[in-house]
């Protein structure tokens, strides 16, 4: 199944760094997110789109993870040639991530 079935997400940007929150619709699914959606797997999911490292932060009180992805915006919002210079659409790509059915 896709992450989109159990979680929602929002992208933010600072310079060439993209941050994506991943939030369980039902807090009971947080443990599953924490187990399945690791920084390594997220880095692999985005492939060439993210040149730098991916760091994961955990916020259990919100049932959420936060992914910080370096060198992900083609040099940053002000100078990138990418159509979506802020990377706003990256959250939707994260929700396309496959996780095992419960």
């Amino acid at each position: 199944m896709k992450l989109r079935q159990i979680a929602h997400a929002r992208t933010g940007d600072k310079g060439d760094t993209s941050s994506i929150s991943l939030i369980a619709f039902d807090p009971k699914d947080y443990a599953r997110l924490a187990q399945e959606v690791t920084a390594t797997r997220v880095k692999a999911h985005f492939g060439a789109l993210v040149a730098g490292e991916v760091i994961r932060y955990e916020i259990p009180s919100l049932g959420a993870l936060n992914f910080v992805m370096r060198q992900a915006l083609g040099g940053g919002v002000t100078r990138s040639l990418i159509l979506d210079t802020h990377g706003k659409s990256l959250s939707s790509a994260l929700l396309d991530f496959d996780i095992p059915d419960a």
């Binding site: 933010g12 929150s21 916020i59 919100l62 936060n66 910080v68």
Partner: peptide, 28 residues
Amino acid sequence: KEQILYELHDPARYLTPDVIADFSQVRV
């Protein structure tokens, strides 16, 4: 929740000129 985490890096260390804020234990 989406807005609390928006553009955050480390939720326990959100740097502003006023404070290093910690959002890591926030409840809604």
